[in-house]
Design a protein around this nucleic acid. Sequence first.
DNA 1: TGAAAGAGCAACCAAGGGGTTGCATTTCGT
DNA 2: ACGAAATGCAACCCCTTGGTTGCTCTTTCA
Lengths: 121, 121
Amino acid sequence: MSQRTRSQQRRSRTAACRQPRAPIFAALGDEVRLSLVAKLCSGRPHSISKLTEGSKLTRQAITKHLRVLETAGIVRSVHKGRETRFEFNPEPIAGMKQYLDFVSEQWDQALARLKSFVEAE
Amino acid sequence: MSQRTRSQQRRSRTAACRQPRAPIFAALGDEVRLSLVAKLCSGRPHSISKLTEGSKLTRQAITKHLRVLETAGIVRSVHKGRETRFEFNPEPIAGMKQYLDFVSEQWDQALARLKSFVEAE
DNA sequence: TGAAAGAGCAACCAAGGGGTTGCATTTCGT
DNA sequence: ACGAAATGCAACCCCTTGGTTGCTCTTTCA
């Protein structure tokens, strides 16, 4: 599955603890923003007007959500003429997966410790 | 890498779209809550007082955070005598990873489509 | 060149989130 | 049985968030 050495695993695991992941999670903690991410990760950059199309919200509301995603790094904005296009950036998502893997691993190890403790009785 | 069949992949992928993931992400979008999860996923259930120890926040503040995590399903509460213990529940985290995998896959496919389009020129 | 499309900016507002204090309730231990 | 420990509940406060409206500015294009 993984090609990484043990030391690389340890490094990425400790790194997974320190970096502030909360803002990234918070940025995805909204249905509107999740749907924006869905649109952006499945195609080429879209302009704000394009992303507002079909939504019941105002252009400015969508803009605010896009800025939240941009601050979290999940999305990048590129100015092109009179329009600003937003494109998906996969790196923070990879970081989140890494963090969740770390949590899962912690939990599995805790269960393993409990199991061996019980069996020792 | 994966042992799942193609139909299983498709089922999990469509499921990844429909369920409301935003509340789960939002629940992890807070440093206090992330540290609580860190404590709970690396050991046995802890009482509220135990989880408050070492924190600069009030017991009630911690309680509120725990309730948020509980509502999201990331944590379960078990009443034991005069204290209520909280324990980690890994299922929502697995769901999040599934969703993030879906997003990454979407993105990879979009890149692949772009690549083949460019090469066709 | 002038109208329309695409955005940015600022003010404003209602609602929710995070945190606190105060008090009541249940349970444990002596 | 009584005090201390562990919580629950409710009210309150402040600040952020999500959303709107109104105005201005730039770019496009006919």
